[in-house]
């Protein structure tokens, strides 16, 4: 759905992107991660055909961003990190304008407005002025404006910045719903926990370059076959020494829980049997799930 090839972007005195290449499959939810100033927003603006790369090509839904920027604009929705709303307009008028200016046919504008408002749970506030909304509700309205024309690709730049936990949860639910509808979504953030709930793929940008192995699996609750977490009841004081004596590789300990790296070819059930046989009282034993942070940390040193 999105194909970025050898993209270089120069600001007047600074090269922001150094030959970035990546491909995002249709239906993916890509977490675009990296430290502040890494080039995430610049890459997003290039994908959105708001800025033209100095070198390289970008296609979105098969459309070249430089050859046909307006068609790309029609195919995607983009919410920048700092956005504004028309504070004097009601939510209904804001969405009506967004729909009409995005080319939604007049006959179905009202339907599109209702649907977008329902998706972000603003249906009961349609006649409220945008200027009267809280930060979280403003974010929802901005996203509704961005998706009112049902784009195939949605780009969200730091969408959860400044949101309270409840609003972040609603945002996650919304992104999951949109992804379930088949939308390809790119979400950038430097706070990995934000992206944990919905990302299926991850791309790390560092110093304007793709870091790690390009677009990789995001983690997203996938089982890590090489590690288990064991929680001990009344662990002995020399727990770690006893585990080492058993030939168990302790990766880290948090309170009563220990993350153990399985030896190559070792079965998790066999390890459990060994621990029980050694008179260690275990109250929980589970495979470790890979988090986005695990994926990030795994890619970061490369």
């Amino acid at each position: 759905m999105i194909d970025v090839r050898d993209v270089v972007y120069d600001y007047p005195t600074l090269r922001a992107l150094h030959g970035v290449s990546c491909t995002v499959e249709a239906g993916a939810v890509l977490a675009l991660v990296g430290p502040n100033g890494a080039g995430k927003s610049t890459l997003m603006r290039c994908i959105a055909a708001l800025d033209a790369p100095t070198e390289g090509t970008i296609t979105v839904a098969g459309l070249d961003t430089q050859a046909d920027p307006r068609a790309v604009h029609a195919a995607l929705g983009y919410l920048p990190d700092f956005f504004g709303l028309y504070d004097e307009l009601s939510i209904r008028r804001s969405l009506t304008y967004a729909a009409r200016s995005r080319g939604v046919a007049d006959a179905v504008v009202a339907e599109a407005v209702d649907l977008a408002a329902a998706r972000v749970q603003l249906s009961d506030r349609l006649d409220q002025r945008a200027g009267e909304l809280s930060r979280g509700l403003r974010q929802r309205l901005a996203i509704a404006q961005t998706i009112v024309h049902r784009p195939r690709v949605l780009l969200l730049d730091e969408p959860a910045a400044g949101l309270d936990p409840e609003a972040r949860r609603s945002l996650s639910d919304l992104i999951l719903k949109l992804a379930a509808d088949g939308m390809t979504i790119v979400v950038s953030s430097h706070i990995l926990a934000e992206l944990e709930d919905y990302s299926t793929r991850m791309l790390m940008i560092r110093d304007g370059r793709v870091a790690g192995g390009g677009v990789v699996a995001a983690g997203g609750g996938a089982r890590d076959e090489a590690r288990v977490r064991a929680t001990f009841a009344d662990p002995p004081a020399d727990l770690e020494a006893r585990l080492v004596a058993l030939g168990v590789a302790v990766e880290r300990r948090t309170g009563d829980a220990v993350v153990i790296a399985l030896a190559p070819g070792e079965d998790a059930a066999a390890l459990l049997a060994r621990l029980v046989k050694a008179d260690l009282r275990i109250c929980a034993y589970e495979p470790v799930t890979r988090t986005l942070e695990d994926a990030y940390m795994a890619q970061a040193p490369r």
Binding site: A48, L50, R70, H73, A74, L76, G77, Y78, P80, F82, F83, G84, L85, Y86, D87, A98, S101, R102, G103, Q145, H149
Partner: peptide
């Protein structure tokens, strides 16, 4: 100033 210009630039107008 109101940060709505990018939104307008993305319109189909």
């Amino acid at each position: 100033g109101d940060r709505t210009w990018d939104f307008q630039r993305l319109s189909a107008l």
